[in-house]
Design a protein around this nucleic acid. Sequence first.
DNA 1: AACCGGGCCAACCGCATTCTA
DNA 2: GTAGAATGCGGTTGGCCCGGT
Length: 342
Amino acid sequence: MGRSPCCEKEAGLKKGPWTPEEDQKLLAFIEQHGHGCWRSLPAKAGLRRCGKSCRLRWTNYLRPDIKRGKFTLQEEQTIIQLHALLGNRWSSIATHLPKRTDNEIKNYWNTHLKKRLAKMGIDPVTHKPRADLGASSGSAAGAGAGARYRAAAHLSHTAQWESARLEAEARLAREAKLRAIVSPPPAPAPGPGTGPAFISGLESPTSTLSFSESAQLFANAPPHDTHGTPRHALTPPRSYEEAFGELQPQQQRFGDAAAPGFVLAGVLLDSSVAGADQQRFAASSTDASVSVSEQQEEEDKGYWSSILNMVNSSMSSSSSSLTSDAVTDPAMYLPAAAAAEF
DNA sequence: AACCGGGCCAACCGCATTCTA
DNA sequence: GTAGAATGCGGTTGGCCCGGT
């Protein structure tokens, strides 16, 4: 049987913009009691709103840890990079932009960045040049760009595939956890890297993303997600970006293309943005594709080959591809200098 | 001054996923 | 195991604001 409904769809519930009084009530209630069950919150807080509306108001506006105002250049780049990698997964993107809500990022993308990319002749969906523009150039610059775009397309595809695979891994880990809870395993053998008993008992025998590792990642995570909702302490990462996103040092530096996904995103950004909009992005991009010489093009090819090699080798270095070691060991995917710095 | 159109963003809607009785 | 509630998420909309005519 399902649950009994905790609140009926009530007629006369208020919709539309929130008043300062309503905000005050909601804030005061949450400060005092936490939000708990959103469905029952409005009645307890004395609001004539549905729980969903309250949750939205809180997560998108009232939460104290929200940063408002203009997006910085760094944030813009981050959004573009992550969008190239993840698509319209705003909540995932928001996890990499602390203090920004998914709604805010989505709005900013739709009202600013999408248009800007389109203006630059870049398809904001694929992050590739629009076919009608890209093919027309017969110049060396066009040829060099073409090579990069092909590589970017390959990387994008690879990234998507890897993302899907890691999500499956996480799912397996979650299932293993559930199984372990139902029938707890014998006491774990002590050893290096062995976590608390309750965690090491949750390993998935099939997953290359071990549960203890993902749980450790999560243990370092803030207690609340971007919506201020408490994370379940043992919830394994649901996706690629969630798994990598908790690697704080890399996350903080992903503008430097530290983690593999960010390498890909950086590549995509460089290929799609730098050449077309130097004014805005050239400062952060190493790809000076404005006046391309033959030599430059050769360097570009080498550059792309090395990235492709790095990505491909990291993905084929284990039985299935990227192992949990690769997730936790920066040397597996960081550029040498960055890994040393780690 | 009035009108218009575009930009912007908070909030809603509806589907998907997760949770729980 | 299943049904259905609760929650999460992305797409869309409605209304305010502002600049241009």
